[in-house]
Design a protein around this nucleic acid. Structure first.
Lengths: 338, 338
DNA sequence: AATATACGTGCCACCGGTGGCATAGTAAAG
DNA sequence: CTTTACTATGCCACCGGTGGCACGTATATT
């Protein structure tokens, strides 16, 4: 077809200079009303929309937002993407995804390359990569805009959105105890991650307040995978057969617990209660459906997107925009009163 | 820190014109060996890498590949993204995601806008959007590069990658019958999708060859969701209690069948066998683990990426590159010999 | 009435590359 | 020893916008 109209076409048709058209499309204030209307009309008529490449080249911007992660949970990623995109598309940005490998040496330079090569305007970093102190420092040094999503408050509030996992785990602990549970086992996440630590501590802290003891041998550190859940559940249930309730650091591992219980002929939730975390795809599908904790992932991601765009455009985030969101308990069938 | 080096810096340092540097970074053949080496050295030394924006503006390219989809299956999307990215990053492209709403009126213009605004070099279209004839036609008209992923061969082989669902379903049918199943029920997918039709037909066709009848009232059309699976399973199992095996069009619905069986006190696989499709996250986690069909999604996506890049760069895809891949049966615990 | 201030607009350079063409240098052909 | 034919390289315009500054005109100030 005929080529897309450019700013020059619009300028010619409206009988003004391209500079003025540029002002209009950027919403500059100092344009005469009549002129603005004329130009708007031409824009509508021709279907003109500015070329992001050219705009980017001239203004040193790309209208691209990067998403950096190293997370196996596809569902989580998907929710994040949708949340970010809902904001992006409205503001004229596009989302470029960049899964990476957190454990390689060139991980940081890889991310920097990614940003600088495509002139990405800003990046959103997902856990657990978001916990990498060094990455954040490098980005800050290079003056690259970033926002982290995390479970702990470890940055300026304009650079982070955190879910209060600890508070959610307090709720879960109270809930379990209120149902009469005293013999509790835990399959924690890797303690090198803040998020896993937060959850464990929030849980233990509250149990402690309620005078419920969890002997150290009833706490097993898992790796957050289904397989790891199976392994840990076996160890835990053999080693401490009196355990009547298990909290697993995520739904994947909780599913592993269900599997092992089934193998061992233990009925859930009659003989054993199980709680997960994430409200994964699995959670509602598994039998019995898992009682778990749901983070408002999409909302968090949208908030992160709003923050990064605010940084990029230099508009301050409104003070009402918070940085802390609280996950909430989803009660299903896997926990039963003793 | 100090700004990124530009082509001008490299040219100056190497004592040549920027045009020659441009030739080197584009792998043009007509550059003297000595010159090339000198330039390469400077590039390495300075860490120069060409600015995609500028390159794009000049050459009318963006080095961006778009991914268009309207698919609720996060796991599928995730696998696709990883597959595409493995090829992209190697060839210097980035991936821009664009979930959309297949059912809105402006769906097509929305996609076109997406492509033209960011000058996306080419798009990969996932099912079920990939079945939209009109979209493909519009793209072709506008000379936008595209590759579709689908379950039916409905385009030039350079524009499509198809998984042979029909063949996979033939295998599944043979497998079920070989295990003695004769009383088979089906929860199909929406028949307006080719993929669902292909699966149903492949399955029925083979059962027919093997002289197994499936009465029409044992075929129920579902909507591919878990909830729909539950609903259809209820109808089917109440209406035709003699059914001893069910094929569900995807794992989500198969999980629904499992749920209903559990509710009704029917043991799977002892009293009822169940098969799914997709090898979803659920498949292995659910109890009993689902026998299902796995498509090599990542490989298909990588192939699609290679095809789209070949189109963009004008290099023909090697003839050995096929367009057809065959899914394969994953045998787990949900089907048992009668 | 003269001067200062503000506003609306246009001109031109520039962002960092690529395309087309001109040109110098060198090798092959006559 | 020319003429021809390449090969290697450079020059300059251009892609489609934005930034900085100058300029003309209208309004406010003294």
């Amino acid at each position: 077809m005929n080529k897309r109209p450019t700013i020059n076409d619009v300028a010619r048709l409206a009988g003004v200079s391209k500079r003025t058209v540029s002002r209009v499309i950027n919403g500059a204030s100092n344009v005469g009303k009549a002129t603005r209307e004329r130009i708007d009309a031409v824009i509508k008529e021709t279907g003109f929309s500015p070329d992001k490449q050219a705009r980017g080249l001239a203004a040193s911007r790309s209208f691209l937002i990067g998403l950096i992660y190293d997370n196996p949970d596809a569902l989580y990623i998907d929710q994040v993407q949708r949340g970010v995109l809902s904001v992006c598309s409205e503001k004229g940005y596009e989302l470029v995804v960049h899964p990476c490998n957190y454990n390689t040496d060139d991980f940081i330079s890889n991310c920097i390359q990614f940003v600088s090569r495509s002139r990405i305007d800003g990046v959103i970093i997902l856990p657990p990569v978001s916990e990498a102190k060094e990455l954040a420092e490098t980005l800050r040094e290079k003056q690259i805009n970033y926002v982290r999503m995390a479970s702990v408050d470890l940055d300026d509030h304009s650079n982070i959105v955190v879910s209060d996992d600890r508070a959610a785990l307090r709720d879960l602990a109270r809930y379990m105890v209120s149902l009469g549970h005293r013999d509790i086992g835990i399959i924690s996440g890797p303690q090198r991650y803040y998020s896993s630590k937060e959850r464990l501590e929030g849980f233990l802290e509250t149990l402690n307040d309620l005078h419920v003891e969890v002997p150290i041998d009833r706490i097993i550190e898992g790796k957050n995978s289904y397989e790891s859940g199976i392994e840990c559940a076996r160890t835990l249930l053999i080693q401490s057969p009196r355990v009547k309730a298990i909290f697993a650091n995520n739904d994947e591992m909780a599913a592993g617990v269900l599997k092992v219980a089934h193998e061992m002929g233990i009925t859930v939730p009659d003989e054993l209660s199980v709680a997960g975390f994430d409200d994964n795809l699995l959670a509602a599908r598994v039998i019995p459906a898992l009682t778990t904790v749901q983070r408002p992932v999409g909302d968090m991601a949208a908030l992160a997107a709003r923050k990064i765009i605010a940084q990029i455009e230099g508009t301050e985030v409104s003070e009402t925009e918070t940085y802390l969101v609280k996950p909430h308990l989803i009660i299903r069938d896997s926990i039963k009163r003793v």
